[in-house]
Structures are given as structure tokens and as C-alpha cells.
Design a protein around this nucleic acid. Structure first.
Lengths: 206, 206
DNA sequence: GTCTATATTTGGATAGAC
DNA sequence: GTCTATCCAAATATAGAC
């Protein structure tokens, strides 16, 4: 019995590895031509299969997008969270935002798929969406930690962040014309909400 | 001779009117399903023609997108410029930005086509692009008028603007969760660049 | 200028042999 | 699980009659 189970698990592991390989190839194609231009034929060719064989691993093309969405979320938030810890809450946010912006600008395909809903007809599944929501919630909590209590503040910060990224990728791809405004933008943001709250907190520069 | 020319012009006018009607129908479809989902069949049906007949008016689908791009630019900037004139340069910018954001949020399809490059393979022609560039230049000049000389400022302002719009349309379509942050964002922006320049100018509230 | 008919291409997805 | 063969649908674009 134990042996049979072990064999099953090994098989499951192999299958999982194959799915993973397909996903990585899908990301590579998405980066080359945009996530919307992904086709099953191209994807199959990239992993040395025929298109119908992909259906052994994913039930549909949308399921592939959904898996990409989930995997992309895991990847970006892992990257952000592994940034060095900062004693100061605002400095921490600055570091996180810098990492987030950099990551997205280096991988516009990921930004489009995860945050711009650029695939016609694709909606992430509940499960996958939850990953994204957790991250947002975590960001809101960080702001409260940093002494910003205005509920509109987190909306303002997500707007600034997405604005920097979309301008950067649309109008200066590969450059840093908007990326380099990132720190300044965070300063601007904190100064503003400090003034509105009356009580100004620190925000020491790097 | 004069008569022949007049006839030619009348004909040209009819043709122009038909092109205009096609364009309006194209915008209607783009608003319904997104600009990327526009098809010649649907478009033809909307103006009571068969698909091939559209080629009498536009040489290709991309030409239709290009005409939409140009027409959309004319439309949005006309709307912005027809806003009430304000004696104060900053108040003027606030009014313009409010109008711009409102216009884009009411017509996300326009925003996508003009500013998000969401159509795979479509690049606006030189001619059409010039319209867009003039508008940007005009915005930069307005900032100088308002006493903001930092060249990075206009990039920051476009980032804030596009961030508000994209968050609004992506995460709260039909609502005003980000739209209502618009005035506050402009204040934040001016305060920030005032401080950096040392010399603080006015910015009276409405 | 408009039509019918059609070429051409390109996708996603399925059937069934192996 | 993988393949070949195929289906089916959708889309741009062209040819040629009227």
C-alpha cells in the first residue's frame, strides 16, 4: 500500500514538474509578444509537444492564464517580501514600492496579466484572485503601521504606483524615466497625508 | 468647370459623412466590448453594410484604428480646452485634469486606444501621433505657467493622472472611488514641487 | 460602391489510434 | 499521455459581377 502511494506521489510530482515547465514557457512567450498573443500551438512547440497534448495538463487556455496569474502573484509578492527589513515603517514601504515598481517594469507582461486585465474574456478564478487580495490587504496594513490612517491613502498610493509603472512601460520601455521618480513619489505621498492629518511623522531619507 | 468641382466636393462630403458614420459606429462597438474586440463584420453590420464594403472607405482595419485614434484625440482635447478659463494657472490645471480624468473614466475604450496601446500590432501613424504630442507639449507649458519648472514634474503629473484613471476603470468601473481623489492629488502634486523649489506659490482652493 | 463568393490564415478544442 | 487528423469558428482581405 505504502509503495503504491509513493508511486502515485512520484507520478504526481512528475506531472507537476511538467505543468511547471509549461507555465514557464508560457511566461516566456507572453514576455515576447504580450500575454494576449499567447497561442496553444506556439506554447506546445516551446515545450516540444503538439497542441492537443497540452490538454493533458490544463483543461483550457483560460486555465493556463489562471495558473499564470496565480504563479505570477506568488512570484511578485515573494520578491517584494524578501526585500531587506527596515526598522522604520515608512522606509519599509518605500523599499517595498521600489521593489514592486522595478519588478513590474522588468516584466510588463506580468503587470498586464495581473493588474491590467488585458486578456479579453479572462477572469481569474476565485482562488487565484484571493492571492491578489491578500497582498492588497497587507499593503493597507503597512500604511496603518506607517501612521497613515486616511482610508483614501491606500487608493492614492496604488494609483501613484500603477501610474508610474504604466507610464514607464508604455512610454519609456527599458529606460528609467518614471522609475527614478519612485522615491520622490513616496515622499510626496507621505508629506501630503501628514499635512492632512496634522501630525507629521518622521520619514528619514536614505 | 466650377460645377464639376462643386459636384466633386459634394461627393467628397458625402463620402466623408459616411466615413464619419463608420467611425462613430466603431467607437460604439469599442465601448461595448473593448477596442481590441472590434471586428469588420460587426462594424459593417452596425452601419448596414457587408464587411468588404468597408474597404471602400478604409484601406484596412488598422486604418480604421488610426482614424479612431486621431478622432479620439481631437475629441478629448477639444473637451478639455473648452473647460471654463481660470485666472489662476494652477486652478486652470486642476480644472483641466479633472476634465481629462472624468472624460477618460467615462470612456475607458478611448483611454485604452489612445493611451494604453492595447491593440496588438497597432501603431498610430506619424500624423495621428502628432496630435497627441501637441497635447503633451501644451500640458508641459501649462505647468511652467503655473510656476513648476522641474522637468520631472510633468512626468510625475502624467503618472498620477494615468494611475487614477487606470485604477478607476480597472477596479471600480462606473464608480468614483479614484475620480474623487483627483483634486487632492493635484494639491499633493503642487505642494510637493513647491517645497522642492523652495518658493511656494498660492494654489487657492475652489 | 456594394454585393456575393471565396481565399487564407489562425485559433481553440475534440476524436480516436497507439 | 501523446500523437495525427480534423472540426469549427472567426477574422482580414481580395476577386469579380452588377
Amino acid at each position: 500500500m505504502a509503495l503504491a502511494i509513493a508511486r502515485k506521489q512520484r507520478r504526481a510530482g512528475v506531472r507537476e514538474a511538467a505543468r511547471e515547465e509549461i507555465l514557464q514557457a508560457a511566461w516566456k512567450l507572453a514576455r515576447d509578444k504580450g500575454p494576449a498573443a499567447l497561442t496553444l500551438r506556439d506554447l506546445a512547440k516551446a515545450v516540444d509537444l503538439r497542441a492537443p497534448s497540452l490538454y493533458s495538463y490544463f483543461p483550457s487556455k483560460h486555465a493556463i492564464y489562471d495558473a499564470m496569474f496565480a504563479e505570477g502573484n506568488r512570484r511578485i509578492w515573494q520578491y517584494v517580501r524578501q526585500q531587506p527589513a527596515e526598522p522604520d515603517a515608512r522606509q519599509q514601504i518605500k523599499v517595498w514600492m521600489r521593489a514592486f515598481v522595478r519588478f513590474c517594469c522588468n516584466d510588463p507582461a506580468l503587470y498586464q496579466l495581473l493588474f491590467q486585465r488585458s486578456i479579453p474574456g479572462f477572469e481569474p478564478s476565485r482562488q487565484s484572485m484571493e492571492l491578489a487580495n491578500q497582498a492588497l490587504e497587507w499593503g493597507r496594513a503597512a500604511l496603518v503601521d506607517a501612521g497613515v490612517h486616511d482610508p483614501a491613502a491606500s487608493d492614492m498610493l496604488t494609483a501613484i504606483t500603477s501610474g508610474l509603472i504604466s507610464q514607464q512601460t508604455a512610454n519609456n520601455p527599458g529606460g528609467d524615466r518614471w522609475i527614478r521618480l519612485c522615491d520622490d513619489a513616496v515622499r510626496m505621498f507621505f508629506d501630503h497625508f501628514d499635512r492632512r492629518q496634522g501630525g507629521s511623522k518622521h520619514d528619514p531619507d536614505d
